[in-house]
């Protein structure tokens, strides 16, 4: 049995270059990690000894790996086939709700936009934005989003068939969080969307959808 003090944060050396390290003490559980060179085979990577405690309600959080969160996504895309592919891939990869806007104006409206009654209180957690829209450039939608305080922290991933340096640079300057090129092939495009979903819907922490209270 391994006894650890509550604030133990040191590593226990168990051999040359091999250490057991306390990674966290939370909710009556101690998480240990083995820090060893890759030549050492680690048979058991995590040990969870019970820590003496009298809180019966403390139960291990059954967070799967990676932790899943429900992802609300606004998909701004006019091509119906791409829309369908994105929606399907998102739902296959993560628990998600996708809302589609097929024009720049509809995207703004979905966020409580220009003619709406004010910005939505709970903006989506992620926006997938196509640059080529029928009524206005996607870049304009991005600039409109970033011009609003309450939408500033909402991650925007640009999806575009045009991934030339100038386009990427202007999107990043306008405040895009990420830029993913649209592949020509159906399968490659679907894989890119899957990677987006797995990254943003997996380990990543998205800002809580809350409105800043104006000062």
């Amino acid at each position: 049995m391994l006894v650890l003090s509550r604030d133990c944060d040191t590593a226990i050396r168990i051999g040359p270059n091999i250490k057991i390290k306390v990674l966290s003490i939370r909710k009556q559980r101690v998480k240990l990690g083995v820090d060893a060179p890759s030549s050492v085979r680690v048979w058991r990577e995590e040990i969870f000894p019970e820590v003496a405690g009298n809180d019966p309600s403390a139960q291990p959080t059954a967070s799967s790996s990676p932790r899943q969160q429900h992802l609300s996504v606004l998909v701004v895309e006019d091509d119906p086939e791409h829309c369908e592919l994105i929606r399907r891939t998102l739902s296959q990869c993560v628990s998600s709700t996708a809302r589609v806007a097929s024009t720049g104006k509809l995207a703004m409206e979905a966020l409580g936009g220009p003619n709406g009654s004010g910005l939505v209180e709970k903006p989506p957690q992620l926006v997938l934005l196509d640059l080529c829209l029928p009524d206005m450039p996607g870049l304009e939608v991005l600039r409109w989003i970033r011009a609003h305080d309450s939408l500033q922290t909402m991650p925007v991933v640009v999806l575009s068939a045009d991934h030339g340096d100038a386009t990427v640079t202007s999107c990043i300057e306008a405040g895009a969080n990420a830029f993913v090129g649209k592949s020509v092939g159906y399968r490659e495009f679907s894989e890119s969307v899957a990677r987006i979903a797995q990254f943003w819907g997996g380990y990543c922490r998205l800002p809580k959808a809350t409105l800043e209270t104006p000062a």
Binding site: S65, P66, N177, Y203, C204, P207
Partner: peptide
């Protein structure tokens, strides 16, 4: 992007 370090090594 913001990724909290998961607690387990794996």
């Amino acid at each position: 992007s913001y990724v909290p370090k998961p607690t387990g090594f794996a």
